[in-house]
Design a binder for these strands. Structure first.
Lengths: 211, 211
DNA sequence: TAGATTGTTAATCGATTAACAATC
DNA sequence: TAGATTGTTAATCGATTAACAATC
């Protein structure tokens, strides 16, 4: 019973949408109103049919010969990704990766609003990073409940990730974006997405080996 | 004419290998010598056949009933990923993401040795981050050639990425790991791998929407 | 009308899963 | 020998590509 019509988004489609959005938003800033897929195809080097199928799976339609209405495209993709309303999130682990994500602009513009960071290390607590406070980990439970925060970004060492997740879930966290190398076990109904930068490195190094 | 026997690695296989390596290295530290795929399956929640096919595609063989020799597994995966010899790399853009990657331990242990950072902003130049110097961008060309550095990690703003790539390639850079949102055009023979954190965010937010 | 672009249906390709054989 | 695990071959599933129809 999803609100968006069209088929469910496939994983490859989901991963292509942010790139579409990048190009389309720029075109919108430049004042375009209608856009044909050829623009996306040229800029991103994709197959025409692929792009149109992706858009169709979002329930978006264009006009032959003219193209798609740009505003609807942008809004449709944002809605499809859930980027139209920004969730408030807490970040855990104010190491260098955590600090980088805390200040990472594209997240704010795209459905993820990190409002505070937490760290177990008293030396890291108290500072403000990118305008967001670093608070003691011990305060996390109460704040999660009081602010009804549903999303957590994990940048803690691998050993600390599972115990932390076990604390977060009972506090109402429904989504965990995990940048640690640990593979987390979470109960049914809680979303956990692992973002291991080493997977990206693996793809890169293999590509280089084969080049 | 690759040295490793077995079929070429598929993209999904490549992305699973780092997780295998994580588990296997820990088992090796714990003193194991033979390991059956059931361990990997349990820890990572994967299909048994998938794991064995992945290992077979690396040319690795086990003994029925006993398992695979752990050392050979680790060495085989490292070799398959090209993680057995660490490439020297330069990082461009010493913003917060760049600084985080500069100090990201897993890279050093896995075939990517970032030895210096470069930035166009004089205010960022001169400092040492994680024991690595931040140098003025103007020195990059000469140093790339002199040190024969073949790998570049890009953490610059999207607008700066393409001009930078155009400068790097003539200096001998053969691989570009691009953390900016820009889609780069590079000549044949130069590897460019885009690592857009927003793709990961997209997968995460859609998962949450559907949960 | 002609032509470009959208939209759909069928064919291909690749990865995962299933079933089973081989072996220590 | 019996049983667990490896290894292989065939079936399924999903995504991409190709071919073509529809429409502004």
């Amino acid at each position: 019973m999803e609100s968006t019509k069209g088929k469910a988004l496939s994983m490859p489609t989901i991963k292509r949408l942010p790139a579409y959005l990048n190009v389309l938003r720029r075109l919108a800033r430049e004042g375009a109103e209608l856009v044909s897929t050829t623009t996306l195809i040229d800029e991103l080097g994709l197959e025409p049919v692929l792009v149109r199928k992706d858009l169709a799976s979002l329930g978006l339609a264009g006009k032959p010969r003219l193209g798609y209405p740009l505003k609807e495209l942008v809004a449709g993709i944002e809605a499809g990704l859930g980027w139209n309303k920004a969730d408030e999130a807490f970040l855990f682990g104010a190491g260098s990766l955590g600090r980088a994500l805390l200040g990472y602009k594209p997240f704010e513009e795209n459905g993820l609003k990190i409002v505070a960071a937490f760290d177990a290390d008293p030396a890291k607590v108290g500072q403000e990073l990118h305008g967001k406070p670093v608070l003691p980990l011990s305060e996390a439970e109460e704040l999660l409940r009081r602010m009804a925060v549903k999303v957590a970004v994990l940048c803690v060492p691998a050993e600390a990730a599972q115990p932390l997740a076990d604390m977060l879930v009972p506090c109402g966290v429904r989504g965990i974006w995990n940048f640690s190398a640990a593979k987390l076990k979470v109960p049914e109904g809680v979303v956990c997405h692992n973002e291991d930068l080493c997977c990206g490195l693996a793809v890169f190094t293999v590509k280089m080996k084969n080049a």
